[in-house]
Design a protein around this nucleic acid. Sequence first.
DNA 1: TGTCTTTTGTAACGAACACTACAGATTTGG
DNA 2: CCAAATCTGTAGTGTTCGTTACAAAAGACA
Lengths: 186, 186
Amino acid sequence: MAGRRRGFDREEVLDQVTRAFWRSGYDATSVADLTKLTGVNPPSLYAAFGDKKALFNEVVERYRRTYGAFTTRAVDEEPTARLAVERVLREAAVEYIAEDRPRGCLILSAPELGHLRKAAIAALEDKIRHDVDTGELPARTDPHALAVYVAAVVRGMSDLARDGATREELHHVAEVAMSAWPSPVP
Amino acid sequence: MAGRRRGFDREEVLDQVTRAFWRSGYDATSVADLTKLTGVNPPSLYAAFGDKKALFNEVVERYRRTYGAFTTRAVDEEPTARLAVERVLREAAVEYIAEDRPRGCLILSAPELGHLRKAAIAALEDKIRHDVDTGELPARTDPHALAVYVAAVVRGMSDLARDGATREELHHVAEVAMSAWPSPVP
DNA sequence: TGTCTTTTGTAACGAACACTACAGATTTGG
DNA sequence: CCAAATCTGTAGTGTTCGTTACAAAAGACA
């Protein structure tokens, strides 16, 4: 038996909340900020999403499936680790500076999401290791070290974007970073 | 005409406060945390350092002169940009994981200190440009792009340290990162 | 229409926040 | 030893935090 219908679009509110957490972080974004931003009063917000922590968790999941999905897609779709990393860096330079969004990466900016970052490094490391095994990369290549290096560069790019870097600067970073990629022995 | 003497060591308290801000950041560190940590009651703390913002500013200045001085020293003391960057990366891998301190870099972790980061990039860029002018680096080298690349790597190393990376991992990042350094044309 | 269920706005809760009024304690200078 | 000056601990200030009690409003089903 149903009752009164929700007076707001759950997805639209979730996107507004995502951008707020993305811009300012979890702690610096108050529930009062969110109610003012969305026009949804506290009881409705809590009924729809649970408490602030649960709302943030849902925001993170949504972010992974939308704004943050380009990294996973590159690693999954590109045939080699080199092409995957090239694409991640090239796309990050665009994504992290997109005009109608907060800058940088929500996940890379949230201290409590280290497990997601660790998983991303492991996935890239596996892809690198595969290329070492097939001879696509030299046998001397250390897959873990190379994956952690890429992680460092991407995090640096996200931080720089938040500091106001330009798209050209990030593209330069990507270009220079790729020149550290191991070249096969002849 | 003097009165009652201060009951605590100002420098010692300042160091404890520095580590608190360093570990948890400005917002997440409450004045109540600081009074509990140092044993100094609020009125004494405010009399000695001013308000929370002024205290943080003094902490940052102190950090620059102590824990964070190794980067400036490397750029000032090393004869070439390459040696300076090599040294910054090598020392960062040690400094950012030191056992009796918070991990990472206080300045790189504080969103409001972008001006200090910008100044550090400019200083490195100048050193790189000097080496381009003297022929130490190839003429095609873009000093700004290379400096921003180094900034990205260092920030990534600081972030990784906070996430629990090991010293070996950071050393690997430094090593791989240096292989992107331009080599002179023969 | 009447009843049941769910959402809504108002208005508050206790806790934690940065900060300070005030009075007693402690020191130097006269 | 007295008086002026500085520091200390207690106990507050008003504000904001996340969260919720409550009753009116609104739609679904009998």
